[in-house]
């Protein structure tokens, strides 16, 4: 939000420029709220309050509605997130094939709990309900990549691929 370098306004302009680009691509009606939030999150990695306020203004919907929508859907995040998002499937097929063991190993390797981000902002760990690759259970998704038929032993190997 407010910064201390003396030209807050200019910085704010610069900070919000990508958002204005996003908004320019839409008719800016109520129905565009979710897609705009999705694009904004893609841009900023999460949804900072200033961004939400601008979106409310831009679409002409009350801030309370924007906030209500953001907190309703699990896809939206109000806090900064890791560079890589690890989604561990806790769906039925993965559950019966030991998905919880993969989650435990992942927690151990990263030193974070479900829903948390590592201190170096490299990884965010979250459990999800089903990725739709149940044939390969247990499954995880890192960013847009699916990794299937996992075992706790394979976890470090998968993580290494994203550690640069």
């Amino acid at each position: 939000m407010a910064c201390s370098c003396g030209n807050a306004e200019e910085n704010q302009e610069q900070y919000l420029a990508p958002l204005y680009d996003v908004l320019a691509g839409y008719e800016c009606k109520e129905k565009d709220l979710i897609p705009v939030l999705q694009d904004a999150q893609e841009e900023y990695g999460y949804l900072p309050q200033d961004v939400l306020q601008e979106i409310a203004k831009g679409l002409g919907v009350p801030f309370s509605q924007v906030y209500g929508v953001v907190t309703f859907y699990s896809q939206f995040h109000l806090e900064p997130r890791g560079e890589n998002i690890i989604r561990i499937c806790m769906g039925t097929a993965c559950h019966v094939r030991g998905g919880d063991k993969v989650l435990d190993k992942m927690k151990e390797e990263l030193g974070v709990d479900d829903g948390e981000t590592t201190e170096d902002l490299k990884f965010t760990l979250e459990s999800v309900a089903c990725i739709g690759a149940c044939g390969l259970a247990p499954v995880i998704m890192v960013n847009d990549n699916t990794h299937g038929l996992l075992t706790p032993e394979k976890v470090p190997e998968v993580l290494d691929q994203y550690r640069d």
Binding site: G91, T92, A129, C130, G132, C134
Partner: peptide
């Protein structure tokens, strides 16, 4: 929306 965990035919 295919939310049922364990189903992937729609996908």
């Amino acid at each position: 929306d295919e939310g049922d965990p364990g189903a992937f035919m729609d996908r």
